[in-house]
């Protein structure tokens, strides 16, 4: 083991100790706004509200049972689109979806055998490590913080914690991130082969199908030479159908990406020689959701997700429980 690897190993232990010593509550910003949807809300209305408030997810509240009812994410819409689009009576099915309430959306997903929606949650005052482990086991990218009133036993949604916010919290508070200096091509995190990609001409529905079937949140868009041009993310599905207009599903990816708002920040790339210290620095200063590993000619080599980084931090191993985001093969392509 080299000195750099030894230092990184020691730094990881310090970071793990930091994560264990903090609660999920500590990660929350001083002031934030939380939007909660009742399960009786119409699907069409919820889509408009997500777009209007520029959010991609919201916790659900069952006011009859007076309890938390899971998280609404873009994956819910992706699953429903995938199911109904194959139906020969697609226009009628779409009209039917608009009359659904969010509770009905959940039942549709159950019917079509979609991956069950995320219903895990953690207590805000429990260790931050508990939240990280729960997210890792369930492969969720965000986790609700649910408090229970000691007197009435009622649940209360405090907030929703995301992987990005946890990693930003770590990068802002842990000086040890500056000691993570092993290059990516000498580590075995991220996905480096069997990448799911699409081209600008690919039909956007086919890309959405990829998002659903592979349970991923982004599909890189490359040209015939493998050069990375753009990325289609699950949040882009929201821009596509935000007015309840499902006919946009026939557009090409290139046309669909034109619907992004002007203030979209773009996607982030890095090199195989980059290190986690630089990546944490980027997370601190930019809204990084994932990193696409490219060479000097922007040829796509791999994908590094926030889950990959967080799992590496908390487990200090190359193997993680459950199935990795894209493939079982962790062999480096370099």
């Amino acid at each position: 083991m080299t000195d750099v690897q030894e230092t990184q190993k020691g730094a990881l232990k310090e970071i793990q100790a930091f994560i264990r010593s903090r609660t999920s509550y500590d990660v929350l910003p001083t002031s934030f706004r939380l939007i909660v949807f009742d399960v009786t809300l119409f699907v069409k209305t919820s889509l408009s509200l997500l777009t209007l408030n520029n959010i991609v997810s919201a916790p659900l509240w069952d006011s009859e049972a007076n309890k938390f009812a899971g998280l609404l994410t873009m994956a819910d819409f992706v699953n429903v689109i995938k199911y109904y689009y194959q139906s020969s009576s697609f226009p009628e099915a779409i009209a039917e979806i608009d009359k659904f309430r969010l509770l009905g959306l959940r039942e549709v997903e159950r019917k079509i055998g979609a991956i069950p929606p995320e219903t895990i949650y953690v207590h805000p005052m429990h260790s931050l490590m508990d939240a990280c482990l729960a997210m890792s086991k369930s492969r969720a990218r965000r986790i609700p913080l649910i408090d229970v009133d000691g007197e009435t036993g009622s649940e209360m949604i405090v907030s929703v914690l995301t992987q990005y916010r946890i990693l930003k919290f770590i990068s802002m508070n842990c000086k040890e991130t500056a000691m993570l200096r092993v290059p990516l091509n000498q580590m075995t995190i991220g996905t480096w082969s069997n990448l799911a990609t699409a081209s600008m001409e690919t039909k956007v529905y086919d890309v959405i199908k990829m998002l659903a079937e592979k349970n991923i949140s982004a599909v890189p868009i490359v040209n015939s030479e493998g050069t990375l041009l753009n990325v289609y993310e699950s949040v882009d599905v929201m821009h596509l159908i935000q007015d309840g207009d499902y006919s946009n599903l026939d557009l090409s990816v290139g046309e669909a990406l034109l619907k992004r708002p002007a203030n979209f920040d773009g996607v982030h790339t890095c090199r195989a020689t980059d290190r986690l210290d630089g990546i944490f620095d980027a997370i601190k200063h930019s809204r990084v959701h994932r990193l696409f590993v490219v060479d000097e000619n922007l040829k796509l080599e791999g994908i590094l997700s926030l889950a990959d980084i967080l799992n590496y931090i908390i487990y200090d191993k190359t193997t993680t429980p459950g199935v990795p985001e894209q493939t079982d093969n962790f062999e480096s392509a370099v």
């Binding site: 520029n54 929703v160 773009g266 982030h268 930019s286």
Partner: peptide
Amino acid sequence: WHSDMAESSGFLDPTDIPPIPSNVETLRSS
């Protein structure tokens, strides 16, 4: 979704830390 946490400066003097070499960039074509 949340307001970002206030950006806090590092605890060490900037001159004490060597600049982190990084090729993390925004894909301009996106």
